[in-house]
């Protein structure tokens, strides 16, 4: 479904991503793991065209995204939950959801019902400015906002970052349910132990390069990952 081929990207003169390649098949949940500053966020930004690559290509459902304008990516079926959630703090929770449905207004009511079924807490808070929601609620709202466009592929950038341990649990529970509902998910995480329980495959990104890939089980048991990331 998504195919990233030898992608390089950077910021100004600084290169953050080197020849990264990966693939996500329909219905799959895939993780990209790696340390701080590895280039995980950069990878997602290139996929959703917030920044353009210096080399390489991204194809989605067999078509290249090279000529697609940033704001047309959503309509192609890719929704991106950005790092740090990035809700519109002075819009209410529901208005944030409405922004998520900007490109698919006809199905708004229907999707809103679906999303509220998935996140009952949001329905309670729907008239509250998003900036006043708790961290966990904000993350739910950010994910819900992405789901409002009815995406085929969901990009999640560190959904567990900055949340209390109990909340982290429930967020991963949610991610699991979303995967179970049949969404295709590409998730970036530093909480490797948790994320490997949710996804079927994963890539390890270090210093801008994909250095390893394999099934979740393979990676979990790989000695270097156990040593470097799982503290075993």
């Amino acid at each position: 479904m998504l195919r990233v081929a030898e992608l390089s990207a950077g910021y100004g003169g600084f290169q953050a991503l080197f020849d990264a390649s990966l693939e996500v098949n329909a219905g799959e949940a895939v993780a990209v793991i790696g340390p701080n500053g590895a280039g995980k966020t950069t990878l997602l930004r290139v996929i959703s065209k917030l920044i353009s690559p210096s080399a390489g290509d991204v194809t989605f459902e067999g078509r290249s995204l090279a000529a697609v304008a940033p704001h047309d990516v959503v309509a192609r079926g890719i929704a991106h939950v950005p790092e740090n959630r990035r809700l519109f703090p002075r819009l209410t929770a529901e208005e944030n959801l409405r922004m998520g449905a900007y490109t698919s207004r006809r199905t708004y009511a229907e999707r809103l019902a679906q999303v509220y079924a998935l996140f009952p807490r949001l329905r309670e808070r729907r008239h509250q400015p998003a900036g006043t929601l708790s961290g966990g609620e904000q993350q739910m709202c950010a994910i819900a906002r992405a789901l409002m466009s009815g995406p085929k592929l969901l990009l999640l950038d560190e959904p567990s970052a900055g949340l209390a341990p109990v909340v982290v649990q429930s967020i991963f529970e949610l991610v699991r349910r979303i995967c179970a509902e049949g969404y295709t998910v590409l998730i970036v995480e530093q909480n490797i132990r948790q994320v490997l329980k949710v996804v079927s495959r994963a890539y390890l990104l270090e210093a801008g390069r994909i250095v390893r890939s394999g099934s979740a089980d393979e990676l979990r048991t790989a000695p270097e990952i156990q040593k470097a990331y799982l503290g075993l």
């Binding site: 959703s48 704001h71 990516v73 929704a79 819009l91 998520g100």
Partner: peptide
Amino acid sequence: TAIRAISQDRAIMPLMGV
């Protein structure tokens, strides 16, 4: 809504399809 949103976070507007 988009007009109000854009003043709060200009950078992620394309992610909304705007």
